[in-house]
C-alpha cells in the first residue's frame, strides 16, 4: 500500500448515475485485479473506497456510481484536480485457479473490476467469457470495452429493455471452468447456488480505514474472521457464510 497523489485526466458520465474517472499517478502498487483504492475527498472525513477498473502505465481508471455524498462530490470533479489515493488495497482475484475458460459475472457497478481481470486472464492465454447484469438499458456500461478484449459477453437486463431479459443467473453459459464475480450480495448468493464450479466473489462493506487497522468491515467466514478491506474484498465460494 502507498499514499500518493493522482491527477484527474478525465471524468465523464458513462450511464445513469455511473461515471468514469481516469487519473494519472503511480499505479505500481496495484498488483492484482479486484483491488481497490481509497480516495480522500476534501471536506469529508473518511476516504471513499472504489474498485480498480483498469491500471497500468501510470493511468488508473475508476468507474463509480453516485450513491452518496462522497461519490456525488467525485462526479463534480474536473480535469486537473489532484487527489490523495491509498493504492494497492485488498487481496484481489487469484487468476491461478481459473482453468482455461473462466466465467466472469458482474452486477451493476460491480462490473468494473472484471475489466482488469478479463485483461489479465486474456494475457495469460485463457478464454474468459462474461455475463453482466443491470436493471435497465440506461444503466448498461463496459459492454463495448469487454467485447474489445475478445471476451464473449452476454448482457442481461432485469426489465428486458436490452440484451437478455432477467438476472445474470438466467443467462449463465453451460460450459466454464471457474467463476469470478462482483455485484450486489443477493446476486452473489444466487450465483453461488447456480454455479457448478468453485469461484471467487468480491464483497462490499462500509469501511473505516481500508487497510486492516480498524476492524470496521469484518465478516465471519467458515475458517476465521476476515476483514473485507485487507483479507478481502475477494472471498472464495467455499468459505462464505451467507
Amino acid at each position: 500500500m502507498t499514499d500518493s497523489i493522482f491527477e484527474i485526466l478525465e471524468n465523464k458520465k458513462l450511464a445513469r448515475d455511473v461515471y468514469c474517472m481516469r487519473l494519472s499517478g503511480d499505479t505500481s502498487q496495484i498488483t492484482r485485479p479486484g483491488q481497490f483504492v481509497n480516495i480522500k475527498i476534501d471536506g469529508l472525513f473518511l476516504r471513499r473506497p472504489i474498485s480498480v477498473c483498469d491500471a497500468g502505465g501510470n493511468v488508473l481508471t475508476l468507474i463509480y456510481k453516485v450513491v452518496g455524498e462522497g461519490t456525488r462530490r467525485m462526479c463534480e470533479m474536473r480535469k486537473g484536480v489532484k487527489l490523495s489515493l491509498l493504492t494497492g488495497l485488498g487481496n484481489g482475484y487469484d487468476t491461478s485457479k481459473s482453468g482455461d475458460r473462466p466465467l466472469l459475472v458482474g452486477g451493476g457497478v460491480g462490473t468494473p473490476p472484471l475489466y482488469l481481470l478479463a485483461k489479465k486472464l486474456v494475457s495469460e492465454g485463457k478464454r474468459p467469457c462474461a455475463v453482466i447484469g443491470f436493471n435497465t438499458k440506461d444503466e448498461v456500461f463496459l459492454e463495448k470495452e469487454l467485447k474489445a478484449l475478445g471476451v464473449p459477453l452476454t448482457v442481461a437486463c432485469a426489465d428486458g429493455s436490452y440484451g437478455e431479459k432477467g438476472f445474470v443467473t438466467d443467462a449463465l453459459p453451460g460450459d466454464y471452468t471457474y467463476f469470478y464475480a462482483c455485484g450486489p450480495e443477493p446476486m452473489l448468493r444466487a450465483l453461488c447456488d447456480a454455479a457448478h464450479t468453485s469461484g471467487q466473489l468480491s464483497f462490499e462493506e462500509r469501511m473505516g480505514c481500508g487497510f486492516g487497522a480498524c476492524m470496521g468491515c469484518s465478516c465471519k467466514t467458515k475458517y476465521k474472521n476476515k476483514r473485507i478491506c485487507k483479507d478481502g474484498p475477494v472471498l472464495e465460494k467455499e468459505e462464505i457464510i451467507w
Binding site: 469529508l44 472525513f45 473518511l46 455524498e69 462522497g70 462493506e205 462500509r206 469501511m207 473505516g208 480498524c214 476492524m215 470496521g216 468491515c217 469484518s218 465478516c219 465471519k220 474472521n225
Partner: peptide, 17 residues
C-alpha cells in the same frame, strides 16, 4: 467477533464506529 455490519458511518468532521 464484535457487532454486526455496518459498523462505520461518516459524520461531519469525524466518524462513528
Amino acid at each position: 467477533f464484535g457487532n454486526p455490519s455496518p459498523r462505520i458511518a461518516e459524520t461531519p468532521s469525524g466518524m462513528l464506529n
